[in-house]
Design a protein around this nucleic acid. Structure first.
Length: 572
RNA sequence: GGGCCCGUAGCUCAAUGGUCAGAGCAGACCGCUCAUAACGGUUUGGUUGGGGGUUCAAGUCCCUCCGGGCCUACCA
């Protein structure tokens, strides 16, 4: 039994996430966690909301709430939706937790002690009307290059030229529109990533089997221009973790907070501590997952994230951990994903284009989404959600192949033998052939799941479902029952054992349908992973009672699909 | 501007430099009648974006062109 630590990139607190956010980190992380648990490993699956930063402050202001209350409310909303999708976090924490405050301040102290923090005077734009410093993106003005009037302080969207806020003509606050801006001096802490460049490079270069998407992004940042740059890790904001040196004040940094990208990854650790606190496990309870000197030496740690998160997880966060000179657990494998598009374009929060997590659950149960999203996860390149593809995947894979298989075998048994596994007959060549086929498919499924090759795993699982239909077609119990009821009984027993097998194997993908199958068979949820295909085909003995389940998956008809297409097409 | 990824059947995707480039869906034909008009079998369909090169051998490696996407750090 191995110890598996899994973290999903933290969803930002600001609003409900769309399907692209879900499929890019939380959902595949959940698949991995569920599989590893099913295989009997000790799994700890951690996620949390990422709550600090300017957007949270602005969203709270817009909602007319204090930011702390806004975040608490949105945490609850995101937690409920995550539960709705059956995301099996062991803990869903908050980056605003006291644990994270203490750990973040601890890391800052350690980094300072190691000489890896510089105090730097910066010149930043301050808006008197807004009463705050403005991040580059929140300053708008006319582009000096192309004359576009809504260029942002970091880049002009029109001509894509990189800008500095002071380049803009007629700059104004993107928040209030105020032009009463001034450049002020303000002191910030910089993490000396440049000093750790060689160390980070060696670490990246020695990672084996990492996705090219992950390593190429890391190398780009290590080598681009003059190499890895020092970055500011503090901000002039109210909402965030106060800048302190551990428990002590940090002279000259009063009123400032740590930058959200500094504290967010630390929340992986902090959320583990929150989990340990919630379960009364004490300090040792979480440190055995994170400290190599306190038991984490045998932990395998995998992170899941979208490609936009890769630089922070390959460079800044490792720099924080390494720079502390303490034996913190570093990530063993980073699984990164491309983006999911919506009907050929981007998901858009502002124009209501695409499906958001809460809406998805109103339309269809979680399993439908889980199956389509995971079997079409943007693993090797960006992928595209279309209602047509979704309809096809749901109807063909779930309803026709799996759902109908369960339906045909349970109903046939009920009508000919009653609702219990019938007795008689002995397995023959057809069953041997089935077992050989299943063994092969099962090995491929397990290999893909171990390697976190999500699409391939989905394909392998589907092939296992198909094998059941092939078998029934070959064995044809509806014909055999007339001449040899005992043989038909044996075929039906085999078929019902396939339902059990499918429930176990499919659970990481479609936990609710899996549960429905096990319930129908009168079995508990924790049925063990099969030792072998042969054994699985005879796991349930003759006489074992079942109830014929309702339709597992309803089909999505054309009319409804068209209505959904229209509903989510967006305003613009 | 710089960098990275991708381009394979009508669609979505596979193929450690090595048999005849394979699956699913869609299409065509046949079979079955247990089942959610479901299932199974057979089958059509490819100058692997274009051009050059390396090699006994290239979808795969190199050069170049074309097309698409992403990243480029103070929104996350």
């Amino acid at each position: 039994m191995a110890r598996i630590l899994i973290t999903s990139a933290l969803p930002y607190i600001n609003g409900i996430k769309h399907l692209g956010n879900l499929v890019g980190s939380q959902l595949p992380a959940d698949l991995h966690a569920r599989y590893m648990r099913a295989r009997g490993h000790e799994v700890l699956f951690i996620c949390a909301t990422d709550e600090h930063g300017t957007p949270a402050e602005l969203a709270a202001a817009k909602a007319g709430e204090p930011v702390a209350e806004y975040c608490a409310r949105m945490w609850r909303v995101q937690k409920d939706i995550a539960d709705g999708f059956r995301l099996s976090f062991d803990h869903f924490g908050r980056s605003s937790s006291d644990r994270n405050r203490r750990l973040t301040q601890h890391f800052a102290e350690r980094l300072a002690a190691a000489g890896l923090i510089d105090e730097v005077m910066e010149r930043q734009v301050y808006s008197k009307a807004d009463g705050r410093f403005l991040p580059d993106r929140y300053i708008e003005g006319t582009c000096p290059n192309c004359g576009y009037e809504k260029a942002r302080g970091d880049q002009c969207e029109n001509c894509t030229k990189q800008l500095d806020p002071t380049d803009l003509i007629n700059p104004r606050s993107a928040i209030s529109g105020s032009t009463d801006l001034e450049v002020r001096e303000t002191k910030h802490l910089h993490l000396r990533q440049s000093a750790m460049r060689a160390h980070l490079r060696e670490w990246i270069d020695t990672r084996e089997g990492w996705p090219i998407l992950t390593t190429s992004i890391a190398r780009k940042w290590l080598d681009d221009g003059e190499g890895l740059q020092d970055r500011s890790i503090t901000r002039d904001l109210d909402w965030g973790i106060p800048v302190r040196k551990g428990e002590k004040a940090w002279p000259g940094m009063e009123g400032k907070v740590f930058y959200v990208w500094f504290d967010a990854p630390i929340e992986y650790i902090a959320a583990t501590a929150e989990w340990a606190d919630a379960h009364g496990l004490g300090e040792e309870g979480w440190r055995r997952w994170w400290r190599a000197d306190e038991g984490a030496g045998d932990v395998r740690y995998t992170q899941f994230m979208g490609k936009d998160n890769v630089p922070f997880h390959t460079l800044s966060f490792p720099a924080t951990l390494m720079g502390s000179a303490e034996p913190w657990k570093l990530v063993d494998y980073i699984k990164s994903f491309n983006y999911l598009n919506y009907e050929g374009g981007k998901f858009s929060t502002s124009s209501g284009r695409g499906v958001f997590m809460d809406q998805a659950l109103e339309i269809l149960p979680a399993d439908y989404w889980r199956w389509w999203l995971l079997s079409n996860v943007p693993e090797s390149s960006d992928s595209d959600f279309t209602w047509e593809s979704f309809q096809n995947g749901v109807n063909k894979d779930l309803a026709d192949v799996l759902g109908n298989f369960v339906s045909r075998i349970t109903k046939f048994c009920r009508s000919r033998f009653g609702e219990a596994l019938p007795e008689g007959g002995a397995p023959g060549p057809e069953e041997t052939e089935l077992a050989v086929e299943l063994s092969r498919r099962l090995a491929e499924y397990e290999r893909a799941m171990e390697a976190i090759e999500v699409r391939r795993a989905a394909q392998a699982l589907r092939a296992i479902w198909v094998a059941g239909n092939e078998y029934l077609q070959r064995a044809a119990p509806w014909t055999k029952v007339k001449e040899s009821p005992e043989e038909a009984a044996m075929i039906v027993r085999t078929g019902l054992n396939l339902v059990r097998l499918y429930a176990i194997l499919s659970r990481p993908f479609i936990p609710d349908a899996s549960g429905a199958m096990l319930t129908a068979l009168g079995l508990p949820e924790n049925e063990p992973w099969p030792e072998s295909a042969e054994a699985a085909l005879a796991a349930l003995p003759p006489g074992h009672a079942f109830t014929t389940p309702d339709v597992l998956f309803a089909k999505l008809d054309d009319e409804r699909r068209e209505a959904l297409e229209a509903r989510f097409a967006g305003k613009g």
